[in-house]
Design a protein around this nucleic acid. Structure first.
Lengths: 152, 152
DNA sequence: TTTGAAATCCGAGGGAA
DNA sequence: TTCCCTCGGATTTCAAA
């Protein structure tokens, strides 16, 4: 079933603060609390909401160094390399692409030392990896998790 | 004040599901509910927890095409370009770096058409932008928001 | 700081429109 | 579907250790 304007508003509010009470959302929308409650459950059961989570401040927790790494691999070992990459905590994102790399990842570490120890060393020690190319960032200006759908 | 093991466990549980009841966490930890409640508030007030949010399934909401774009700009116009980039909904992340680009961004769109219309057109129409280089991805294997700190 | 109890408020489910 | 209502349970606060 397709989402309507009410769903978009719910998603937008939850995205801003997932602790927002159904009561409050219902008040803003002018509908019953139980209606919002059911909508949220539906959105979750349909998989539109993947999960409720928290965003940690990297400066104060796991580290604030972001590095993007392009990886070229032997074609037949790509799936295995992807599996290894996904298992590394410091590797937050893993993508497949056509060129100029086979795989592209985003790593988050405390510093260069941790990047080398926990990420690069593991990658370069993985069978099938031909080459890596790191793009080190110096500052993070924005980091959102998803595009909030427009309320058409 | 530094985080202890209890805090790490709370963060890990909330990260998995931010709707987890304080009661449940308290039960697992063997402490009082009010203790967990206070800890969570502290973590939030100290800014360690940046926000409570939801993760949307890109396939079913805003789009599932991820593109990384390297941008070179005139040095004196960098800040202004960053400001423009941050304001684009489809640009989820914005980083500064030294080389081979001045700015590196992650964009999320429904398709290539939207990428061109809502992202590339805007970027190339921004004063100070010298060149852009797009890395198109074909598949998303993993996408986490943050490294969950280890319970030392 | 943690706790335990008290009071308020919310979430969850069922039945009617 | 949405709404109303109610019960069980969670959140929140605070005094005491």
């Amino acid at each position: 079933m397709p989402m309507d304007k009410t769903d978009y508003i719910i998603l937008e509010k939850l995205s801003r603060d997932s602790r927002t009470h159904c009561t409050e959302i219902a008040g803003d929308l002018g509908v019953a609390t139980s209606t919002v409650h059911k909508r949220v459950n539906q959105l979750f059961n349909e998989g539109i909401i993947e999960q409720f989570t928290i965003v940690l401040n990297p400066d104060k927790s796991g580290g604030n160094m972001t590095t993007f790494i392009g990886i070229n691999v032997e074609a037949e070992k790509k799936d295995e390399v992807v599996r290894v990459l996904k298992s590394i905590d410091n590797v937050l994102e893993v993508y497949e692409l056509l060129e100029p790399y086979d795989i592209f990842i985003k790593a988050r570490t405390q510093d260069i030392r941790e990047l080398k120890e926990k990420v690069l060393k593991v990658i370069n020690g993985t069978s099938g990896v031909l080459s890596t190319s790191s793009i080190l960032t110096t500052r993070r200006h924005k980091e959102n998790t998803c595009v909030i759908p427009r309320k058409e």
